[in-house]
């Protein structure tokens, strides 16, 4: 007994240091402090240089000649026309993709059929097509030398270099957003609640509006938000089909390019700052929505 006590007392003194060192070093799932700090520093500096700085620079440049210059730049008729056009185009393409997204998600998520994965791949296609090509395909269809070019000219319908063309190209580019936000969510929720509603005598549409829609409202909002951000910010595709007619077919991103090329930096960055603001608001809302979706709070009414 006495042996044991002295034994452990000795351990407590001589082993204490070695033991503390082992405990500190030997958390099996982490790295030494130096490595940890190096990794964090690397990650943070990379994100700061490549992401934070450009963002800060947009606002710094926009306000570089003072607040009045900023406001004046935005009040230019050209700027106002671009803002109006951007809102109009976004409204058209978001509405179209919202309806399509709901319809497609219902078909894909609530039913089993062969070729489903392939269909999802097709819906995803615009994600991996260069924006320039997204514009080009409509030029090939509706341009003067395009497949429908002659017919359109005969009937005096303007698609390219006009709002319909810009809206079409934007719809193409933002096609997957709503559907892709809804499909996994609706697949996860299954069909039981809808089946219960149908078995209780509800009609299909009623079931959709009373049961499905409340369950997916946050997911739907998420999709619409991302869709809208991309629709307002699209540059490449719109650039190809717009024709750059000043005050008529210039969206905000196109105007940024024109002003920048004309060395009107304050004006260019003023418009850019509006778009950056849109991106930041979208991100904040997205983060909040993601927390809601992850928390499974999608069902509170």
């Amino acid at each position: 007994m006495a042996m044991q006590i002295s034994d452990s007392a000795m351990l407590a003194t001589s082993g204490a240091k070695a033991r503390a060192r082992a405990a500190a070093l030997e958390n099996i799932r982490t790295e030494p402090a130096a490595v940890r700090i190096a990794i964090i520093t690397l990650a943070v500096s990379f994100l700061t240089i490549f992401v934070v700085l450009p963002l800060v620079l947009v606002f710094a440049q926009a306000f570089s000649k003072g607040f009045m210059a900023y406001v004046t730049a935005l009040a230019e008729p050209e700027a106002l026309a671009a803002i109006k056009l951007t809102l109009l185009v976004a409204a058209i393409s978001v509405t179209l993709n919202l309806v399509f997204g709901l319809v497609a998600a219902w078909a894909v998520a609530k039913f089993e059929f062969s070729g489903k994965t392939f269909l999802i791949t097709l819906i995803d296609l615009p994600f991996s097509v260069s924006p320039v090509i997204s514009g080009l395909v409509f030029v090939l269809l509706f341009g003067a030398q395009g497949y429908f070019g002659g017919w359109l000219r005969d009937h005096d319908i303007q698609i390219l270099f006009a709002v319909p063309g810009i809206a079409l190209a934007t719809t193409f580019v933002t096609f997957p957003f709503v559907a892709r936000a809804l499909i996994p969510l609706m697949q996860e929720q299954g069909t039981q609640e809808e089946e219960a509603a149908i078995s209780l005598g509800a009609s299909g549409l009623r079931t959709f509006f009373r049961v499905t829609l409340p369950n997916i409202k946050w997911g739907l909002l998420y999709g619409v938000l991302l869709c809208n951000a991309r629709a307002m910010g699209e540059f490449g595709a719109v650039s190809v089909v717009s024709g750059h007619i000043r005050g008529e077919t210039n969206t905000m991103p196109l105007l940024v390019e024109i002003l920048y090329d004309e060395y009107q930096f304050v004006a260019a960055f003023a418009i850019a700052s509006l778009l950056a603001m849109l991106a930041l608001i979208t991100l904040v809302a997205k983060t909040i929505l993601e927390r809601r979706l992850d928390g499974g709070e999608d069902r509170d009414h």
């Binding site: 990650a43 943070v44 994100l47 490549f50 992401v51 934070v52 700085l53 450009p54 963002l55 620079l57 947009v58 440049q61 924006p131 991302l226 951000a229 307002m232 910010g233 699209e234 540059f235 490449g236 905000m252 991103p253 196109l254 940024v256 390019e257 920048y260 930096f265 260019a268 960055f269 850019a272 778009l275 950056a276 849109l278 991106a279 930041l280 979208t282 991100l283 904040v284 997205k286 983060t287």
Partner: peptide, 24 residues
């Protein structure tokens, strides 16, 4: 915050990114 910032290149209109990177 840095976690959220990762998505900026995704959300920021490409033209804005273009002029900002160029000026930077």
């Amino acid at each position: 915050i840095f976690d959220a910032i990762v998505d900026v290149p995704f959300a920021l209109p490409t033209a804005v990114a273009g002029v900002a990177l160029t000026a930077l």
